[in-house]
Amino acid sequence: MSFLFADLFAGIGGFRIALESLNGKCIFSSEWDKYAQLTYAANFDDIPHGDITQIHPSKIPDIDILTAGFPCQPFSSIGKREGFEHPTQGTLFYNVVKILKEKKPKAFILENVEGLVTHDGGKTLSIILETLSISVNGQYLFLCQPEIRYHVFWSILDAKDYGVPQVRKRIFIVGISEDISTDIPDFRFPIPHLSKEFIGSYVEENVSGYSISKHLQSSYLFKIDDGRPELIDRESRIQVKTLCSTYHKIQRLTGTFVKGGETGIRLLSENECKAIMGYPQSFIIPVSRTQMYRQFGNSVAVPVVHEVARNLINCLAKYKVVKENPIKKSDLINV
């Protein structure tokens, strides 16, 4: 394999799908949620280790790249915005730091919600960058961080620009070790695609079992005539709203629903969820529908990770620390 990687806060394996498609080999994964573990195991024949806070970094194998979609709730714009003051999840970033200090991988890819950028007036992001960096986006920092020294690059990327029919803005933070290059590496985030994917191409017909009751439609969803919620069909040339982990609660302001089914309006189907998150249609979902929505809503959009990782691998290849990757173009939805 071209490189070895660890998959932290692995969820159902979005990072793993993307990096394995680039000739990577996952040699360690961690995910505490038992239902996500079931889905992960069903697809990769590999049960992730549990709570990362209970695993000493020395127990993790040596890796080339660390990936982590560390929990977003403390930084989310729809949460309480508690950041590092959150009693558990806000401190999980520092578990990532401990592993970086111990294992010193050549590079890392972190992902989080867009709200991380503005949380606490930008202080939270500054703490994260200063903890990781000797340089940020091409600008050198003069900080005393002797144990962890990475050239760090960050950007907000929107999944709709990379081949999926969903608006999903996330911050990606990429680091390349000073051990690879004392000069700032020529890493670039992927440029947006000129062509766009629209949800209508992925809407299924004659789907049963996902219907929203007539009573709920009249008493809640369409009680106010304000153009909400978002409704789609085969003719829809849009990218849908961000799929949230609470989608199963049928929220009229944040939800996208489909015209069809037994009652005229239904929830997104399993295959439609796979499409808007960039998962292959062969991906196995062994859990309940509620858990499925939670898992996809908490996941990364696979094609975005694929393109970020591809650019990182090609950058590292210039320093002869991984084999140059032969993949030149992502396969969009079916990476």
Rank of each mutant, 00 (worst) to 15 (best):
34 K>L: 10
40 Y>I: 02
36 A>G: 05
35 Y>E: 15
65 I>C: 13
38 L>N: 14
36 A>W: 03
63 I>W: 01
68 A>L: 03
50 G>V: 03
53 T>C: 11
44 F>L: 06
38 L>R: 13
71 P>G: 03
45 D>H: 13
74 P>M: 12
45 D>K: 11
33 D>T: 02
58 S>P: 03
72 C>L: 00
44 F>H: 00
34 K>R: 15
73 Q>A: 01
42 A>L: 04
33 D>H: 04
41 A>Q: 15
60 I>M: 14
34 K>G: 03
39 T>D: 08
78 I>V: 15
78 I>D: 10
46 D>T: 01
59 K>G: 00
51 D>L: 09
33 D>S: 02
62 D>Q: 12
59 K>Q: 14
52 I>F: 01
66 L>C: 11
76 S>L: 10
74 P>K: 14
72 C>M: 03
72 C>R: 04
45 D>F: 11
48 P>V: 08
72 C>W: 04
66 L>Q: 06
42 A>R: 00
44 F>K: 00
33 D>R: 04
34 K>T: 14
71 P>E: 09
42 A>E: 03
69 G>H: 07
43 N>Y: 01
77 S>F: 03
40 Y>G: 05
35 Y>F: 15
72 C>G: 04
41 A>W: 07
73 Q>D: 02
78 I>G: 04
66 L>N: 09
67 T>S: 09
42 A>K: 01
66 L>D: 06
38 L>E: 15
37 Q>C: 12
65 I>S: 13
52 I>W: 01
70 F>W: 06
71 P>H: 09
33 D>A: 01
41 A>L: 13
38 L>S: 15
54 Q>P: 00
52 I>T: 03
38 L>Y: 10
56 H>T: 10
35 Y>C: 03
70 F>M: 01
74 P>E: 15
71 P>A: 08
74 P>Y: 12
37 Q>Y: 08
54 Q>M: 11
63 I>Q: 03
54 Q>E: 10
48 P>F: 08
74 P>C: 11
37 Q>A: 10
62 D>Y: 11
45 D>V: 07
58 S>I: 12
46 D>S: 11
